[in-house]
Simulated assay, not measured.
Amino acid sequence: MQKNNGDDRISTLPSDILVNILDRLDVREAVRTSILSRRWSQLSCKLSRLIINAQPDGVSSSNISDGDLVRINAAVVEATKSLLTRRYPGEDTISLLSTTFYLRGDAPISIGHAVGSAMMTHKIEEAEFTVLTVKNRLYCTLDDVLNYGTQFVSFFNECLNAFTGLTRLYMENLRFAESDFVSNIFVTCKRLKYLGFLNCDTKKHLTLQVKHAQLSELSMVNCRFYKVELKWLPRLTRTTFTCWMAFEELPLSFGHVPLLEFLNLTNIGLSRNKMVMLSTLLCETHIQELQLGFKCEKIWVQPECLSERLASAFHRLRIVSLVSIPEGSDLTWTIFILEAAPSLEELYMSVCSSYLNPLVPFYMGFSAT
C-alpha cells in the first residue's frame, strides 16, 4: 500500500484530483484532512464548494436549546472566517459559498463581513445566505417577527458588500417597519437568481413592484403583501405564491416574464375571496407547468369558456396539478383547462376528504397527441 519513499498512494495523486475528492465530502470532514500533513493543509484551502450549515439535519430550531444555538452560530462564524481567510487571494475560484445561520446576536454580521471581504479578493461564482430564526413560524408572535425584521435590517445595512454579491437568499419570519425595505433587497442584490420569503411582510401593507435582471426563481409563502406586481423579470422561470389574504382580487400580476415556465398558486379559499380568472392572470405568460392548491371551503378558480385569451395562456401547458380539492366539489370547473390546453401531457388531482384528513390522490396522464 505504500511506495518506497513512504508516501501513501492517495497523497501521490495530483492536487486537482484530491481537491475534487474533498469537494465531495462534508466541509467539516474535508477540513479535518488538513491535520494529515502540510500538503493536505494546503489542499483544504483550495476547496471550491464551501457549504456551512448551522441547522442539524432533521432538527428544528425549536428543539435546540438556547445555549446550543449560540454555540452552533459561533461555530458557523468560526468556520466561515477560517475557510475564507486561509485562502490565497485570487488563486482558486469558489464555485459555491453557502452559509446557513440563525438570526441571533452578532453572528450574522460577522458572517456577512467575512463573506463580503472574500468577495473582494476571490472569484465566487455562487453565494448563498439562508437566514433562519430562533422560533419557527408556528410559534412566532407579532413582537417576534418585528424583532427579527429589525435584526435583519441591521444585518443587511452592515453587510452590503456581501448582499450585493449574493446569488441566492432565503429568509423567514420577518416583518419590516419600513415599507420600502423589500424593494431595497431587489435593488441591492443585483446578482440574485433565487429569492425566497417565508412568513414575511411589512408593517404597512404595500404594493411591491418587482424588477430584476437576473432573478430566475421567486418564492413567497405565507407572505402578506397587499399586491405583488412582477413588472420586469426577463429570466424568471419559476414562481411560488401561496396563502394570500386579499378578498377582492388576487394580489399577484405578471408583466414582462417571457421565460416563466412553472407557477404554483396555493391558498385557503374563503367564501369572501373573489374567484380568479386564469386567462386574465396568465395572459402575458407561456407557462408549461401549473400547480393550483385548494385548502378548504371553496375552489377559488373561476370556470371559463374557451376564448382566444385563454387558449393563448394555456397553449404551452404540459403539466397541471390540482391539489387538495375539497371532497364533493363539482369538478366541471376543470373542463376548461382540458379544453384550452392542447399540449397537456399530465393532469394530477388530489382530493381531500376533509380539511384535517389525509389526501386521497389519483393520477391521470395524457400524451401530447
Rank of each mutant, 00 (worst) to 15 (best):
K204T: 15
I325G: 11
E346W: 05
E339R: 14
R28D: 12
L132G: 09
D92T: 12
N199T: 15
V320K: 00
K190N: 06
D7Y: 02
R71L: 04
A162W: 00
P89K: 09
T12Q: 08
A340D: 06
L146Q: 13
G293H: 07
F366G: 05
S37E: 04
N157G: 05
E78M: 01
M171D: 12
A107E: 10
I287S: 06
I35K: 05
L252M: 06
S41Q: 07
D143L: 04
D16R: 05
N267Y: 03
C200R: 10
K231L: 01
F155G: 00
L218F: 07
D16M: 03
E284T: 04
S48Y: 00
L310M: 11
A107G: 04
G328A: 03
S37W: 04
G255V: 05
Y355G: 08
R24Q: 15
H113V: 14
S11E: 10
P342G: 09
E308T: 14
C223F: 03
R104T: 13
I52P: 07
H286A: 05
K190L: 04
L310P: 09
A127N: 03
L132H: 14
K298C: 12
G269F: 00
E126D: 09
E178Q: 15
S219R: 14
L259W: 05
E125P: 04
I319L: 00
A311R: 10
